[in-house]
Design a binder for these strands. Structure first.
Lengths: 199, 199
DNA sequence: ACGAATGTAACACGACTGTGCTAAAAAGGG
DNA sequence: CCCTTTTTAGCACAGTCGTGTTACATTCGT
């Protein structure tokens, strides 16, 4: 019958067009029409793939979350527990152009989700990523601990929360002032923080 | 002549109405009309105090910056260098309802400013607050250092950047998951981090 | 009390919004 | 080749947007 097009692929294309609009002009400019124009289709076409605007927003945000998740899941690092930890945490930070872009739209989505006070669709995605990153921090510290690399008497739960906050703070700073908070500097700071936890 | 009304005061009232709209419905909903309704005036009235929408946004964002700035400037803490440092840093964190509200709109503004790539009016305000907080961190650590409280061999510049990132990360977490990242927990984490720097 | 300066409201305009609905186009199986 | 199904484009509607302009209300100095 007609040309068969993978809807999921198409949806991701449109979602990425939305990312570009959000990065360039902010969430306020992300209308069905502007996104359609950015993607190179008619407004009616994008409405064929998304029921409404909120569905588009939600899908685009979920796509960011899935991207981050699969990039971290795909990692398979060899080496010391410290090397592994650093590598994983760096993967969660916006150290290259692609991840910078992702974090920019993530920031915009977080702010937007913050408005839907309570439990909107966006809020769920934010919480999921947030919890995932926190669990990653806990897991990495636990590995370091089991490898006997850590100092004695550390409260792992506390250190995980601190590490998590530090990660997000560094990400935020690299988004706000990329000139000052360079990828190299972020790596230095992260490594230094972890080293203070070592025996 | 007519009733004399302090324009600056009125502008602040309107800006605070905008804050409420932003917190409740997001930046996307912050139109001249919705803000006017929230403030209890006609749209024409708010346009008498602000030339256009961008002016309103910019003023409202600057007001947040000024609020934070003056609250920190007004502090006059007695005690050890550590006590002083903790008190100052806590003032920069969203530990009560008022500051939670401020940080929420600040987050929204940051995301919006991120879109105006380059040097829009909002971007300037973001940078100003960001630099201010960084200088505060540096200043506090320097005081601790001069009081002889810090460990030997610390790179103050590096520790200031780490502290700054930690502060912003904690603020972000308290905005995203206020249930998990409670004010009490934030204080614990902050104090613990500073204690690792002590001799 | 009057009139001038100032604040407030209201309306008009064109552009844009989301979304329902309908018609056209495209394309592979028969 | 044609027909059926999927995909795309387009239009219509009511609502909101920002903003320019105009008329009204208010109030203080004279």
């Amino acid at each position: 019958m007609p040309k068969i097009v993978d809807h999921d692929v198409r949806r991701e294309e449109i979602a990425q067009a939305l990312w570009r609009v959000v990065r360039r002009d902010g969430v306020r400019a992300a209308s069905v029409r502007t996104v359609a124009a950015e993607a190179g289709w008619s407004p009616g076409a994008v409405r064929y793939y998304f029921p409404d605007q909120e569905g588009l927003l939600s899908f685009a945000m979920d796509l960011v979350a899935r991207r981050v998740d699969q990039r971290i899941s795909a990692l398979d690092v060899k080496g010391s527990a410290l090397t592994i930890a650093l590598r994983y945490l760096e993967e969660a930070l916006p150290l290259d152009a692609e991840r910078r872009a992702e974090f920019d739209v993530w920031l915009a989505f977080m702010a937007q989700a913050q408005a839907e006070s309570g439990a909107g669709a966006l809020h769920g995605h934010v919480d999921a990523v947030h919890d995932g990153l926190r669990r990653l921090c806990e897991s990495l510290l636990r590995s370091l601990s089991e490898a006997g690399s850590l100092r004695e008497g550390l409260d792992l739960r506390r250190e995980a929360e601190l590490l998590h906050a530090l990660i997000d703070g560094l990400a935020l700073h690299s988004a706000i002032q990329p000139g000052r908070t360079t990828p190299a500097r972020i790596r230095q700071l992260l490594r230094h923080h972890l080293e203070t936890l070592l025996a």
